[in-house]
Computed example of a mutant assay.
Amino acid sequence: MSNEFKRGDRVVVKPFFGGLFNRYNEQHGKVVSINGNQVKVEFDDKEYGTQDISGDILSKESFEPHEVNAEIENVGKHFQEVFPKLSGTMGEQMKKELPNHLGYLKNAQASNDKSSVLIESNYLLGSLQVIRNTESELKDWGEEVEVSLDKIQWWAKNL
């Protein structure tokens, strides 16, 4: 079963597989590696970490456009929350540029423009790294943003 997965795939643990409750039931994550039927999954919920999961109880994630739009809104919300903490010239520049790029991302998603969705989400991921590297109090900020952008990119790659 795991031969259908590849590194980078977004997956979800199937609910109540075989009638047994699984502790990872309905958890979402990303494939890190594959070894036979064992798929190493980095879960979105950091509480679960990275685990080897049987490929038999995994399925690929799929997203509807309204779910992708909700992820874009989530990214925007998190950036809005961090804007007041950004300092200096670069902080001011990001406060101006990031809302524009979020708008470009929304437009690209609405028109199913795969290339533009990937470009804009990569830009936002890069901005996240810049924030972490330049604002010491925010070095651990943005895990939810990363997960949302990963979901958006997965959706675009599967258009």
Rank of each mutant, 00 (worst) to 15 (best):
Gln93Tyr: 15
Leu128Lys: 09
Met90Arg: 13
Asp113Leu: 07
Val130Tyr: 00
Asn100Gln: 14
Ser121Val: 00
His101Tyr: 15
Val130Glu: 03
His101Val: 14
Ala110Phe: 06
Leu125Met: 10
Val117Asp: 08
Ser116Arg: 14
Leu118Lys: 03
Ser115Tyr: 12
Gly126Asn: 02
Asn122Trp: 03
Leu105Met: 14
Leu105Asp: 09
Ala110Gly: 06
Phe79Glu: 00
Gln129Tyr: 01
Gly126Tyr: 01
His101Trp: 15
Glu120Asn: 10
Phe79Leu: 05
Glu97Tyr: 09
Lys95Val: 06
Glu92Tyr: 09
Gly103Cys: 06
Tyr104Trp: 13
Val130Phe: 01
Lys95Trp: 10
Gln129Ser: 04
Gly88Tyr: 12
Gly126Pro: 00
Glu81Tyr: 04
Gln80Phe: 03
Val117Arg: 06
Leu86His: 10
Gly103Ser: 14
His101Gln: 14
Met94Thr: 01
Val82Ile: 12
Glu81Gln: 10
Lys106Ile: 13
Lys96Pro: 00
Gln109Arg: 09
Asn112Ser: 05
Gly126His: 02
Leu102Ala: 05
Leu98Gln: 08
Leu124Gln: 02
Ser127Pro: 00
Ser127Gln: 06
Leu124Lys: 01
Gln109Cys: 05
Ala110Arg: 07
Glu120Ser: 10
Lys96Asp: 06
Asn107Ala: 13
Val82Ser: 05
Asn122Met: 02
Lys106Asn: 14
Val82His: 09
Ser127Arg: 08
Leu98Tyr: 14
Leu125Val: 00
Pro84Glu: 06
Ile119Trp: 07
Asp113Tyr: 11
Tyr104Met: 12
Val117Lys: 03
Tyr123Gln: 09
Gln80Trp: 01
Gly91Phe: 13
Gly91Cys: 11
Phe79Lys: 02
Asn107Leu: 08
Ser115Met: 11
Gly103Ala: 12
Gln129Phe: 01
Ala110Trp: 08
Met94Gln: 06
Leu128Ile: 01
Thr89Met: 08
Glu92Thr: 11
Leu118Arg: 03
Asp113Cys: 08
Val130His: 01
Gly126Thr: 04
Ser127Val: 02
Gln109Glu: 12
Leu86Ser: 06
Gln93Ala: 15
Asn107His: 12
Glu81Ser: 04
Asn122Tyr: 04
Pro99Leu: 12
Leu125Ser: 04
Ala108His: 13
Gln93Met: 14
Val130Asp: 07
Pro99Asn: 10
Gly91Val: 12
Gly91Glu: 11
Val130Leu: 08
Pro84Ala: 07
Gln129Cys: 03
Asn107Pro: 05
Leu128Trp: 06
Glu81Asp: 08
Thr89Glu: 07
Val130Trp: 00
His101Ala: 08
His101Lys: 11
Asn100Arg: 14
Leu128Cys: 08
Lys96Gly: 00
Lys85Tyr: 07
Phe79Thr: 00
Met94Glu: 05
Leu124Cys: 08
Glu97Pro: 00
Pro99Glu: 12
Ser87Ile: 03
Leu128Asp: 07
Ser87Thr: 09
Gly88Met: 02
Val82Phe: 10
Asn100Lys: 15
Leu98Ile: 12
Val82Leu: 05
